[in-house]
Design a protein around this nucleic acid. Structure first.
Lengths: 337, 337
DNA sequence: CTGTTAGCGCGTTCAG
DNA sequence: CTGAACGCGCTAACAG
């Protein structure tokens, strides 16, 4: 019924399989007339070359893998969009793997992907603790990789991030300029690259702008209830006048806890948070956001990956691209970089 | 360097390739002792069977494709999550294809996917106009398909949707109960299934609850500027006291236009919209939302697909699963189904 | 310009 | 219980 393949085309045209194959490879080694006959029949029968066979033969899958913690986060959704648009243009296919922040999964994926299923990998690390052997393994195998956002910093690999340290600094500065004297930083997954940078930005800004003031950092985990408990304690203890949240999810929990505690944002507490909901006007007007250019990050990561894949002989570049996040305050109208 | 394959394992153990192969297929046709030797070496060398070769041989790719308009929409992001979780559990890989609402792309994808690259397809239609031959083609080829959200209604295919007609009715009723006398419906992509149902819900509710009142429906397109122009005209003309938006994007534009026009939501105009931002507390408190259970939809679609794929001999079921959306008003605290 | 031959890596006969 | 041989569909050398 189905199975229209080279052999079938060949037999119907009284040609050899290899000649038919050449017609598609657009080889100069073929008579234009016969090529047209072949293409005509192929079109008529709706011939679709079997990519598995082709990949097996050429050892190129024309497929990349994207390994990310989660796609329910708008940041990653946009990043995928960027990646896909570049991949599409290059004629590549995109496999998607979600780790759900589980290092075990991440390891399983990277292991499996040594099988030749993909020509390259774009990934953002799960927040699971330590252990980078699986990444080294891949690197050793010579599979091109590009990291984005939550990057692997220990090795010389290509990576794309935002100016997280600077953004942390700016966010803190924003709070201080709005009159905050004891802004708190709330973060999670303390071992991932972006969390570290953002926190450092907060601490550096505090040192510069409020010298002598002690810093307060709430380190949340993956358990939402425990997180909220920590936030509650913070709010009921020495009440902060500003909160800089490193992750959108934590901002949500801050809202919830403030509501319980009766605190109003931004009248009692000013809240600024990383967030990638670009739907600005749907957002709560009391929230000031720092938005990463997620789409651009995805595109850039893909561009770098394809660049290294095309120039196979070239060294995989230890490139570190840094794009800028955008701070946006809703109450006023202005936008700041 | 790389290329640890059956042949290499076989030669290192002085066995034949086929024996080694059997060890992995867990054939009863093999000596447990030699099987253990094989598995041990495989583990040691980190052997990863080449899935391309395997798929070519078995004619099963253990891969599915997800074709959707866009992933920047939180609905689709969550749906992917659901799909991926089921696929992962079943040991399948997930390819992702974004049409960007472009029918040409959609056709190209479905054409290509007749090649044997995937065993099944989950898709949500692009809003491009008419023409379902490409879907019929796939169906004819016998590739299992499941549609979700924006489904293909003409054929007897499996599909998963929400109660869009009912939700449209409820949304309109919500406005009427809040005192609206002339609520307007704003929608787009008039030919896609969900838009039609939601609109019908609006019209039926108007007929029942405000008999005699004329309905007003703004049909937007893909051009944002033109859309805003239409919304502006609506707001400056016979001003509505309520807006029921069928799509999140349009709600955003309503906010923007209201701001320009000086209208306040919800004091001057009540706004209710379909939206899949589940981050309730980050949302503007003036927005009442209807949220689809996106994750559950994705899971359900995948479950159906795998069910039909496993029971190959079984007839592909013309199943239509309907899940329920949830209406949520932010000002008050209650939740309603 | 066309055809023959030989694999890519794996799974499945069928002999022994 | 093990091995030799074949083919999935396609591409790449090399002859003619």
């Amino acid at each position: 019924m189905d199975a229209v393949n080279l052999k079938k085309l060949a037999s119907q045209l009284n040609l050899s399989v290899s000649t038919v194959s050449k017609a598609f490879r657009n080889s100069y080694d073929i008579n234009p007339a016969t090529r047209d006959r072949i293409l005509a029949l192929a079109k008529k029968l709706n011939y679709q070359p079997n990519p598995l066979a082709s990949s097996l033969r050429t050892q190129k899958s024309r497929t990349i893998a994207v390994i990310i913690p989660d796609v329910a986060n708008n940041f990653f959704a946009l990043a995928i969009n960027g990646i896909e648009s570049i991949a599409r243009a290059a004629g590549y296919h995109v496999l998607i793997y979600l780790t759900h922040e589980d290092l075990t999964q991440e390891i399983a994926f990277t292991r499996h992907l040594q099988s030749g299923r993909v020509d390259g990998i774009i990934m953002s690390l799960s927040s699971g603790d330590s252990g980078y052997e699986h990444l080294e393994e891949l690197k050793h195998k010579g599979i091109p990789m590009v990291f984005f956002d939550r990057v692997y910093e220990n090795a010389d690999t290509a990576r794309v991030t935002t100016n997280d340290h600077e953004s942390g600094y700016i966010a803190t500065k924003h709070l201080v300029e709005r009159g905050c004297k004891k802004p708190v930083h709330i973060t999670m997954a303390k071992n991932i690259s972006i969390a570290i940078k953002r926190k450092q930005g907060y601490m550096d800004a505090m040192k510069d702008l409020l010298p002598g003031m002690s810093t307060t950092i709430i380190e949340c985990g993956t358990d939402h209830e425990k997180n909220k408990e920590m936030i509650r304690q913070m709010l009921t203890g020495e009440q902060p006048d500003g909160i800089f949240s490193a992750f959108e999810k934590l901002a949500i929990q801050c809202y919830q806890c403030c509501e319980e505690t009766g605190l109003r944002i931004p009248d009692d507490v000013k809240l600024i948070s990383f967030s990638n909901l670009e739907t600005a006007s749907l957002l709560n007007p009391s929230l000031t956001t720092i938005t990463q250019p997620a789409f651009a990050i995805g595109k850039k990561a893909a561009e770098i990956l394809f660049h290294t894949m095309e120039n196979k002989n070239a060294v995989i570049p230890n490139e570190h691209i840094i794009l800028k996040s955008v701070l946006e305050e809703r109450r006023s109208t202005g936008k700041t970089a």
